[in-house]
């Protein structure tokens, strides 16, 4: 039985938005619940995929876990220790265990540093290394991520997208990370390069025993790389379970829409007009005025097909995640 490396309990992250200069005095502050009551756990050598539309709070979860943004409330337990309220000094030893691969590597890699210095900085920030050791470690890292040695003297802008991504991964590995938040590691990459990165991440997991929180909106990649998947909608997890189950037998209407809107799957399906009906109406959602009750109700096909049952919009009974067998959890009053 693998041990649980990371557990998150009732995590909340609210952003405030001031409306005008004196809004805080007037008590007129907008609250944006970017992450609203999220709980999950990740075991050792396990990958959890996190999917959802733009702006549903995926990246915010990642940032909050690594304490790059303070959590509003809730608990983050890493390897048995509650790290939610640690000061930055106390958190220091954990920082090398938990790392993030950022979405936009053009912004995350210093454009004025050569790749060698970027890796050197990451290696020496937590450990003191002699020159020989440093050289050995850098070579070792390059080998791990399949990067050519002659790229070391290049600047980040001279590398291709896939190579930059590898430098990002190497940098996370340099400090000896065990848990990695991979924020959209394959977005903006071509399919061929995407495949290289996905294979690399899988290989590293096998050889180094890493755990990933894999954030992406590319559903197929998530299904491929993850052991379990959590689907987010408007700051909440609406469905969670084993990757195969979520993809093939979704129970929440939103997950169903998400997966059936994959262009490839759809073109292979014969009954196209049927798909048409499944499309979520509207498409937008408003974080500033989250709906009472079930947040997905205005776009939900089940809600309309059941003639708008009151329970869906009742503020006192917003659906909570409940187990429906096979470790499959869904937050819906009428699971499919």
């Amino acid at each position: 039985m693998a041990k649980t490396i990371l557990e998150v309990k009732n995590l909340k992250k609210y952003y405030t938005q001031s409306k005008g200069l004196f809004s805080s005095l007037r008590g007129n502050v907008g609250i944006i619940p970017a992450v609203d009551d999220v709980s999950f756990y990740i075991k050792e050598k396990e990958t959890m995929g996190l999917v959802g539309e733009t702006g549903c709070g995926k990246t915010t979860i990642g940032k909050t876990l690594l304490k790059l943004a303070p959590a509003t409330s809730g608990e983050i337990i890493y390897d048995g220790t509650d790290i939610t309220h640690l000061s930055s000094r106390e958190f220091y030893p954990y920082r090398k265990k938990m790392q993030m691969i950022f979405q936009d590597l053009d912004a995350a890699l210093n454009p004025k540093m050569r790749i060698r210095s970027i890796l050197k900085e990451a290696l020496t920030v937590h450990h003191k290394l002699s020159k020989a050791e440093l050289k050995y470690r850098i070579d070792d890292l390059l080998e791990k991520v399949n990067l050519k040695k002659n790229k070391l003297s290049n600047f980040p802008n001279e590398l291709s997208g896939g190579e930059k991504r590898r430098v990002g991964i190497a940098r996370a590995l340099a400090v000896g990370a065990q848990f990695i938040v991979a924020d959209e590691p394959t977005s903006a990459l071509d399919v061929s390069i995407q495949a290289q990165v996905v294979n690399l991440l899988k290989d590293l997991q096998k050889t180094l025993g890493l755990s990933y929180l894999f954030i992406s909106h590319d559903l197929r990649i998530v299904e491929l790389i993850s052991h379990k998947v959590a689907v987010m909608y408007l700051g909440q997890i609406v469905e969670m379970g084993m990757a195969g189950l979520i993809a093939n037998e979704p129970r929440h209407p939103y997950t169903d829409i998400l997966w059936s809107s994959l262009v490839d799957k759809k073109s292979s399906e014969v009954n196209r007009s049927n798909e048409e009906n499944k499309k979520a109406g509207g498409g937008g959602f408003d974080f500033e005025r989250p709906l009472e009750g079930c947040r997905f109700a205005p776009r939900c096909p089940v809600y309309y097909s059941k003639n708008k049952p009151d329970i869906c919009t009742d503020p006192s009974s917003s659906p909570t995640l409940r187990d429906i067998g096979d470790a499959h959890k869904v937050a819906c009053h009428f699971p499919l």
Partner: peptide, 18 residues
């Protein structure tokens, strides 16, 4: 072949890369 196919996903196979 570098696009993950249904088969790849089901068996968690490695993707073919160029």
């Amino acid at each position: 072949s570098s696009i993950p196919s249904q088969e790849h996903i089901r068996e968690k196979k490695k993707l073919q890369v160029i």
